[in-house]
Design a protein around this nucleic acid. Structure first.
Lengths: 181, 181
DNA sequence: AAGAACGTTAAATAAATTCTGAACGAAATT
DNA sequence: AATTTCGTTCAGAATTTATTTAACGTTCTT
């Protein structure tokens, strides 16, 4: 069976599937399950979907769709939409990849900054105590100083990352890197 | 047993462990296994390590260290170092987080751009064929046009991402976002 | 108020990853 | 050449993660 003689409606679905496959494949970077990745990619071509539509479209269980769509909402790649009349919840995919990018990475990077800076602050306090401790041998003090400085140095990176997040959130990044070339 | 009366050398190890825990925790974002994350975080405080040192330090098997260190090399977070005299391979962790950041994200984003742009190109060709196909009904043609335009629109994002990668690789990003504030 | 429609939770099953022990191969030492 | 050292590959075990079936609670409909 040759592709050239294929019915147009079938050909459309196959073309969509190529893109759906690519999006889903690269979404592992976003730390979502395959089900969630496939779901988002499928929704990318749909206006809005209900849980039941998702289930029939992807051939998966309803709880699976329920948890997947919740995860996608957490990273702001899917929004719940109000549809009057219908009792079923409807959801739409964020189709603007710039917004998906911004929402996801800002969230993740902020988490990275917070967790690491908190740990660094605690550790640096400990190192200072060791340095001031009269029981510490000169070797121990030297070691503590070395680690303290290494952490101090690394803070530059986390502050930079924080700055990056801010510039992405505010849209200022697009002054430097315009969307259109 | 109170922390205040703790021996300095023990206190140093505990302080290090706080940071090791934080780094390892946030490294899930980098798509590495827990073993690899722990290994990198441990190596962050070491000059260089051999496989056997890793094994004893983390209390894991040698094959596990071998695969972990290979994965870390793939994303340029660990480099193999030549140590004369020793037959054992030695490895050092990339301690400059800017370089880790750049290497990892540029690699991942380039992959995302390539996979998706390839799929988009193929799909757009298909949509054009459908549009030109005399067997296509007006509804089918309209649908194909809609999808074609949606993909065309999304290409802006991938080109921007490609541009971002380029500016990170070249270091030009730091003209806009300096490392030191 | 009873019943149906929805979505979620919980427990279980299934699937995929990760890790280990054993065997292997290459390189160096004796 | 034989033996040891070192790193990797491979097959299986163990753990974790993802998914499903079944039951539950809520809200709407009649």
């Amino acid at each position: 069976m040759s592709k050239a003689t294929e019915r147009p409606d079938v050909k459309i679905e196959e073309a969509k599937d190529k893109v759906i496959g690519a999006i889903a494949e690269t979404m592992d970077l976003y730390g979502v399950t395959p089900a969630a990745a496939n779901l988002y990619a499928t929704m990318y071509f749909e206006d809005q979907m209900t849980l039941d539509e998702m289930r029939t479209e992807l051939g998966m269980s309803k709880p699976s769709m329920s948890t997947s769509v919740r995860r996608l909402q957490e990273i702001d790649m899917v929004k719940k939409t109000y549809t009057r009349g219908s009792r079923k919840h409807t959801y739409t995919a964020e189709k603007n990849f710039f917004r998906s990018f911004m929402a996801f990475y800002c969230q993740m990077w902020e988490r990275e900054v917070k967790i690491n800076l908190d740990a660094i602050r605690e550790a640096q306090e400990d190192f200072i105590e060791v340095i001031k401790d009269s029981h510490s041998t000169p070797e121990i003090v030297a070691k503590a100083k070395k680690y303290y400085d290494q952490l101090e140095e690394s803070k530059t990176y986390y502050h930079w990352l924080d700055d990056l997040v801010e510039n992405i959130r505010s849209g200022k990044i697009f002054e430097f890197l315009p969307k259109e070339k």
